[in-house]
Simulated assay, not measured.
Amino acid sequence: MTTPFRALFCDLRTDDIIDSLPLDHVRFDDRIGCGGALTGRFALPDTETAGRAEAVVPARTAVWVQRGGNIWWGGVVWRTARHGGPAGDALEIVAATWDSYLDHRILYAGKESDTAVDQLVLARELVEQAQAQPNGDIGITTSDTVMSGVRRRARYADSDLTRIGEALRQLADRRDGFEWHIASTREPATGYRTKRLDLGYPVLASELPDLEYSGPGAVLGYAYKYDGSRMATMWRSRGGRTGGAGHLMSHVWEITDVLHPADADLTWPRLDGASEDTDCGRRETLDSQAQDALRAAWHAPASLDATVPLDAGTDPALLGRHVRLRLEEPWHDGGLDRRMRVVGFAVETPATGARETVRLTLGAAAQAPVAAYLPAPVSSR
């Protein structure tokens, strides 16, 4: 018999347990750098259970999704809906991973420095500054053991009202940036639940052995996905340096010429792209960054999803793990045989009697050396 997913509801600030209930209609996903979401519901068959459900308060309740002692997902409950009808009463929850909390935190005091620090130090400081504020600590742990060698300056004025989640994403997406993820796992020494900020340069990768999947076989389906929404055939970048002092500070702007790919197909419609780096006022650096950005926007690769059974050697330690994927498919001569890295996954509980599956979103394998590898989680307490 399949072990069901259970929701462990806790106080967001203290992680004190509120209740534990089985979930059905469960869908959740997670991805390096942008997190994920959860939807699910549990039945309210009687007054006692309905009363327990009232303790699940949006924006102050955490939810950990567990299965057989393993933590698969964790985040903040942001919305609930109580459903009633002939099929019975139920409470539906909508939650998002821990990074969503950082989108509700603003650098009211700003963060500015003329001294450049490692970009991973700056990322940790942003999270630590959020948690240092009154009532702002939700228990996200950080580690200072990983460095990238790339130095940045903090330039977040208090008047910018910068959201910390947005600042992290923008910092990671800059040229020569990094990958990040807030993992839901257990502390290795004690087995207690933990929210851990993982940082990696240039990518996050796992030290666990490669997973191996073949199709036909364990691979139940696959999809090559093409996204033209971020493509560009023209590009311009803007940068600037800060001048003046105190509240009279202003930016002296530098802007590149409009660039276009040398190998562009002239039959394409014009698609404009742009970027901004307020910490860079050197024209030659901006020109190089604009060329890199245009190259990435013009040659955007297809992504590959592979769907496998949930019991095919899969466990919660999926993000950053490498997969050796072999597919008999017509788009590669002799089929596909490639080592790839899991950058996202999605789980959806099926209809009664159907096979449980997980969809893996795969990206390019990590190229050594990598500054940070994801540690293996503790599976049970």
Rank of each mutant, 00 (worst) to 15 (best):
P377H: 08
G281C: 00
S288G: 09
L304V: 06
E254I: 01
D176G: 00
S148N: 01
P4A: 15
L197A: 11
A116G: 15
D198P: 05
T267F: 02
A372M: 10
A87C: 01
R283H: 04
L325K: 04
L319E: 04
D158A: 02
S20E: 15
V252R: 04
E284R: 09
A123T: 13
R41Q: 10
V342F: 11
A296Q: 11
L310E: 09
E128Q: 15
A297I: 07
E187F: 04
M147Y: 00
A123H: 00
A154R: 14
E112C: 08
G240M: 03
V77E: 07
L21G: 02
V150E: 15
V56K: 02
R339A: 11
L12N: 05
R359I: 01
A371Y: 06
A297P: 04
R174W: 08
G344R: 05
A189G: 13
A90N: 03
A293Q: 00
I140V: 14
F9K: 02
A300Y: 05
E348K: 07
L325R: 02
L91G: 10
Y222W: 10
V77F: 00
S206L: 06
A130W: 04
E207S: 14
D160M: 03
D158F: 10
A293P: 01
L126F: 04
D99T: 11
D103H: 13
L286F: 14
M147P: 00
R105A: 08
L327D: 05
G165C: 02
G84D: 01
R124L: 02
H260M: 13
G110S: 09
M234R: 15
G165L: 10
G353R: 15
R186P: 05
V56H: 02
G139K: 00
A346L: 00
H83P: 02
R270K: 11
A293Y: 04
Q289T: 01
A297Y: 03
L168D: 03
E128C: 13
I140F: 04
P269V: 01
A81P: 00
D227V: 05
A354H: 07
I106G: 09
D257T: 11
G69Q: 04
G363H: 06
E128R: 15
R67F: 06
T314S: 13
R6F: 04
G40I: 04
L336M: 06
A53I: 15
P134I: 05
W268C: 01
Q291V: 11
G139Q: 08
H83C: 08
R79M: 11
R82F: 12
S380C: 05
G68W: 09
V323S: 00
E125I: 06
L318V: 06
R41T: 06
G85H: 09
K195S: 01
V378S: 14
G139T: 00
E166Q: 09
G165R: 11
Y213E: 10
A90H: 07
D114H: 03
